[in-house]
């Protein structure tokens, strides 16, 4: 007998609240549009890119931006910078989504358990402490030494580094929701712990998890570029924004644009996520009273 249902109003109107909030928040809307453009570029990369990402043209190295056929010019090997950038965005988002997925899939259950059962809290706290003891770059260095550098490795390192924060966010939410009346009601009706966690706590922690995911994405995008820049992530000839910057640094005074375009792209992706994430937080935060 389950008469107690989770008040789904909080989630049900979430979409409506996001739209309302975005209408009153031009910066958040701009961030959302930026992300939409970036996502479309990544998905449609093979359709949009005029050249292959690794297509070399030794007759046309260091072309200036605006040259016919090369919108943003070419690099030292005559590769089209625009095409490489679009494929680079694809890699950035792939790594970002993979690491978000890892942090959510591992961090959420651990956070729920730690928040719900006090005796598990101590054990899980020690686990997060140990993970936090390794700076993200050191995790990446270790994984690269064991498995060799790759896209999967970069995503793994970035995801692992984000698990502790995800655990903390979900744990905090669980502690809050655990004390609400509807959870109390469910418990008086003999709902088991797991039933309360998955039926009542998790659905209500959803918005906090989504907001945290928008915080992780830009960190992962910068992280991927950084690892690839250092040679610990994506390996050439695959196009990655980090590899493009690393290549461009070698001939920076000859062709500064080869470094400028990928850098601006990384910055814009992150700006998009930061602006959109802020708007999302405002929209979903129940304690925010400044909402119109």
């Amino acid at each position: 007998m389950t008469l107690v249902t989770t008040p789904s109003a909080e989630l049900g109107s979430a979409r409506g609240r996001i739209w309302t909030s975005l209408r009153h928040n031009p910066l958040g809307l701009a961030g959302g549009i930026m992300l939409l453009v970036v996502a479309l570029l990544a998905i449609l990369a093979p359709v949009i890119a005029p050249h292959g990402p690794a297509e070399v043209n030794f007759d046309a190295p260091f072309q200036a931006p605006g040259t016919v056929g090369y919108l943003m010019g070419t690099d030292d090997l005559g590769r089209d910078i625009f095409s490489r950038m679009i494929y680079g965005i694809r890699v950035s988002l792939q790594v970002g989504l993979l690491s978000v997925a890892l942090a959510v899939v591992i961090g959420t259950p651990l956070g729920l358990l730690a928040g719900y059962w006090r005796w598990l809290d101590g054990i899980i706290s020690r686990l997060t402490d140990v993970t936090l003891a390794f700076p993200f770059l050191i995790i990446a260095v270790g994984l690269a030494a064991i498995n060799g550098p790759s896209l999967a490795n970069a995503a793994l390192a970035l995801g692992i580094a984000q698990i502790p924060t995800m655990i903390r966010v979900v744990r905090g939410e669980t502690l809050r929701i655990k004390e609400t009346d509807f959870v109390l009601a469910a418990r008086t009706m003999d709902a088991t712990g797991l039933r309360v966690i998955f039926g009542h706590v998790l659905p209500n922690a959803g918005s906090a998890i989504i907001v945290q995911a928008t915080v992780i994405m830009p960190v992962a995008v910068i992280g991927e570029a950084l690892l690839s820049f250092l040679g610990l992530g994506i390996q050439p000839p695959t196009a990655s924004l980090g590899i493009m910057l690393s290549d461009a640094q070698q001939y920076i005074s000859r062709s500064p644009t080869a470094a400028i375009f990928p850098g601006i792209t990384i910055a814009l992706i992150c700006l998009g996520f930061n602006l959109f994430g802020d708007a999302l937080r405002d929209a979903l935060d129940p304690t925010n009273t400044s909402r119109k």
């Binding site: 570029a225 470094a259 850098g263 992150c270």
Partner: peptide
């Protein structure tokens, strides 16, 4: 602050050198 948080510092470094 917004630029400092969004712009990766290795890119900033390359531009600074340039």
């Amino acid at each position: 602050a917004l630029i400092g948080l969004s712009v990766p510092n290795f890119w900033l470094g390359i531009l600074a050198i340039l």
